[in-house]
Design a protein around this nucleic acid. Structure first.
Length: 807
DNA sequence: ATCATAACGCTTTTT
DNA sequence: GCGTTATGAT
């Protein structure tokens, strides 16, 4: 056999074996999995098995290295090995023995040479657990993390290079950043109305995205006459100064500083770019310029960069994401390959076609048409409601109907454009006894009491953290009033020292003589907490090892006792503060969870995790309940039944996007995202009239609905949904004629149901009516259902799903 | 220092 | 329409 012929046969057999390992994937997916080398752009439509491809691609890299994507064979390959391969090539679908795999492999990558970057912790967690499921233990060494946590990891190691920050830097979240800005605006004596913290932060964020320092920013605007921008420049400068003094980094800084460090320090760059032989980035359409730069630097050495995304699902332009990154990837990486995943495994034909129809109206896109082998499925139901409460009731009714047919509550998701829309829906769900969960809205970690507790922990960790220090210096009240705080922070900023230093030396300043005792009391408290935190518990201290830090939960309990925070809440208003106290204990369970998951977990580590992981309470999937959330939060999720509510001009698309072609395209992408969340059934609802922000308006139906061909839709009008007597409501009338007939029927009288009645509810089954309480024009029914427990329903809503049964 | 009332303002959101 | 915040009065 010539060497050439040998090589050919070897390659052929090897390829068949590797392909066999991924034969459960479709052709395009397989191609993507096997294209391990060089730049790869993976355009993955909604529901096309994107994460599966990422997982398998990594598995391929670890198992076979670059064998699936090159024409090289090991120089030491023998004919005996070829025989083994060929013997297995034909039955490649079975489990392949390890020795055969290693004949195939060419430069297997160690797990720590792979970095997979995602946007959300949830996505990162999913990636990690799926990797672990197919790769076992070695998956733990893969860097599967968010942009931000990857940067924190890098910075904790190397940030001291820059000589500005120390390793134990603090992370500021958006709220922290905003309150710092607020302080600065005050201190610079600027008009607070002209500089809302949110807006200013957006400017800073954009500047950082362009890698502009405060000085760059000031330079740039100095040529203009825009005084406001010049002042924003001043704010930026002051912000940077104070952040440095506080040894703090905000979310943008985490990435910015990492990029700076990698650009400026060749040895650091060399270390990471050499380390990461394979770089993968998920949701690439949502990256901003800074993130693009980070990825570019990390992948700079090996150029094995795979970005996965869908230009049609870019919905975060408003926060700086640049869809350009995906649209121009091919220009940036000239020799890159492009693979499209267009087969959808999630939705029915009707739903998918509707989504395709809508998104095809956009101009700025790569062009891609999803298709599916799934059945056509049910038509999309469009419901034109009278007003928002009719809309909500309709949704509730459909859910009850679905539940009575055997679906779970968790199979339903209601998607809206803005959080403010959830109110009416919540009412309707409550009235009808539908268990639900609202995702988003006010977050656990944004609550005042939680912020307070974390502020204490932050100060223990880093006494230079002025912002957090100011938050707790008089909380609980310890007689340090606003005036004292002002004087202290002024002295501090004049001397360029942390506030804590001034507080410590209160006696040295005549201005503070009056408050000195109380200030020193505070110092005492902090020092006490600090020494508690970093001293080993009794008996465990070994003389030859360095002192072990105190377990976090003990520190936390000590903190609660020593500060008297809970006592204060209880004394003040035990009623109102009950939930606050609950939250404080809830934080303790977070601490315990953290300790269980991180054996050598430190206070600093815990604070990192908290700073970057803000949605801990989110998904408790153990409880079966319907889900409500914004369309944005729904990205990446899927549900059997989806309701898109408020499909009206002015709401969706929102007022601010109408007349702005680019914004409108973003709204349309959002619509595409929303539609493609649905697996089996999609409802779209729109109200003729709606009250929002205290104003009633009549809106035209959303243009996005008009963009869906009628053939995919079933249009439904409001019928009278309340029936007169016993018995269930008939199917909703669909024609104008029957609708009018139905309008003759009357509201069910409150007296229809009595205490002690046996009732049958369409969704909840049989039960006993325990009490009837008149409430306005309605009645609250308390019913002990045989199988689902006791529920409280409002008669006007529930009656249509209920009848009395004779005993 | 704390409470009351007036005033504002309000996409979307992750880190 | 509602929830948060700013300001002033006690």
């Amino acid at each position: 056999m010539t060497r050439n012929e040998f090589k050919k046969r070897f390659l052929k057999a090897r390829r068949r074996i590797i392909a066999g390992e991924f034969s459960h994937l479709n052709d395009m997916q397989q191609e993507a999995v096997m294209a391990t080398e060089g730049p790869l752009l993976l355009l993955a439509g909604a529901g096309s098995g994107k994460t599966t491809v990422i997982i398998n691609r990594i598995a391929n890299i670890l198992k076979y290295g670059r064998a699936s994507d090159c024409d090289e064979i090991p120089p030491y390959a023998t004919e005996a090995e070829l025989e083994v391969l060929e013997a297995y090539a034909d039955r490649a679908t079975e489990e392949i023995p390890e020795d055969v795999k290693s004949i195939c492999a060419l430069e297997r990558a160690e797990p720590w040479r792979v970095i997979a970057i995602t946007f959300t912790n949830k996505a990162a967690d999913e990636l990690k657990s799926r990797l672990e499921a197919i790769l076992g233990e070695q998956a733990l060494d893969i860097w599967a993390s968010t942009f931000h946590s990857a940067c924190v990891r890098i910075l904790r190691r190397d940030i001291e290079r820059l000589g500005i920050y120390s390793r134990n830097f603090t992370i500021y979240d958006t709220v922290d950043s905003q309150s710092l800005i607020k302080r600065i605006v005050k201190d610079l004596e600027l008009d607070e109305k002209m500089f809302p913290p949110r807006t200013v932060l957006t400017y800073l964020s954009n500047a950082k995205d362009q890698m502009q320092t405060a000085e760059d920013f000031i330079d740039q605007v100095s040529k203009t006459r825009d005084i406001r921008k010049k002042q924003i420049g001043e704010i930026y400068r002051e912000y940077t100064k104070r952040m440095r003094e506080a040894n703090a980094l905000d979310f943008d800084d985490l990435i910015l500083i990492t990029v700076k460090m990698l650009s400026e320090y060749e040895d650091v760059r060399e270390y990471y770019s050499n380390k990461f032989k394979y770089v993968l980035v998920d949701e690439y359409q949502d990256t901003n310029k800074l993130q693009y730069n980070l990825v570019r630097l990390l992948a700079g050495k090996w150029n094995n960069i795979c970005v996965v995304g869908d230009d049609d699902q870019g919905i975060y332009r408003f926060r700086g994401a640049s869809i350009e990154n995906i649209l121009s990837f091919e220009d940036q990486y000239k020799n890159c390959r492009v693979i499209r995943l267009e087969q959808n495994y999630r939705s029915t034909g009707n739903i998918l076609d509707a989504a395709n129809a809508v998104i095809s109206m956009n101009v700025a896109r790569k062009g891609k048409e999803l298709w599916t082998k799934n059945e056509r499925g049910e038509l999309i139901t469009l419901y034109r409601a009278e007003n928002e409460s009719d809309e909500a009731q309709y949704v509730a009714t459909q859910i009850l109907e679905g539940f009575s047919q055997g679906l779970n509550w968790g199979d339903f998701a209601v998607l809206y454009r803005m959080n403010a829309q959830s109110n009416q829906l919540e009412y309707a769900f409550k009235r009808n006894g539908i268990p639900y969960r609202v995702i988003g809205g006010t977050k656990f970690f944004d609550r005042a009491e939680i912020k307070d507790m974390l502020a204490y922990l932050c100060v223990i960790n880093n006494t230079n953290d002025d912002l957090r220090l100011l938050r707790i210096i008089n909380n609980p009240p310890r007689g340090i009033g606003a005036k004292t705080v002002d004087t202290v922070s002024q002295i501090a900023s004049e001397g360029g020292v942390p506030i804590y230093e001034v507080v410590k030396r209160a006696r040295e300043y005549t201005e503070l003589s009056g408050a000195a005792n109380r200030l020193l009391g505070f110092v005492n408290l902090i020092e006490d907490l600090r020494s508690f935190a970093y001293t080993a518990p009794e008996g465990e201290a070994a003389q030859d090892t360095q002192p072990k830090p105190r377990p976090l939960d003990e520190l936390y309990e000590y903190l609660l006792r020593r500060t008297g925070y809970i006592d204060m809440l209880e004394k003040k208003n035990p009623q109102e503060n009950a939930s606050r106290i609950e939250n404080i204990w809830e934080l303790k369970s977070n601490i315990i969870t953290y300790m269980q998951e991180n054996e050598d977990g430190s206070l600093a580590g815990f604070l990192d995790e908290i700073a970057l992981y803000t949605d801990i309470e989110q998904l408790d999937e153990s409880v079966d309940s319907a889900i409500m959330m914004t369309m944005h939060s729904a990205k990446g999720l899927e549900f059997p039944v989806v309701f898109i509510v408020g499909a009206e001009e002015g709401i969706f698309p929102g007022v601010r996007s109408i007349g702005e072609p680019e914004e409108l395209e973003e709204e349309r992408r959002l619509c595409y995202v929303a539609i493609t969340r649905a697996k089996k059934k999609l409802y779209i609802t729109a109200a003729r009239q709606r009250m929002l922000f205290g104003r009633t308006s009549a809106n035209r139906i959303s243009r996005f609905v008009e963009e869906i061909p009628d053939a995919y839709m079933d249009k439904v009008q409001p019928g009278i949904t309340i029936i007169r007597n016993t018995g269930f409501s008939a199917p909703r009338p669909k024609t104008e004629k029957s609708r009018i007939e139905w309008q003759e029927k009357k509201t069910v009288p409150v007296t229809e149901f009595r205490k002690g009645d046996r009732v049958h509810h369409k969704a909840f089954g049989e039960g006993l009516l325990i009490s009837v309480t008149a409430m306005g024009g309605d009645a609250l029914l308390e019913i002990a259902f045989d199988s689902v427990g006791t529920k409280r329903l409002l008669c006007n809503s529930a009656a249509r799903h209920m009848k009395k049964i004779d005993v």
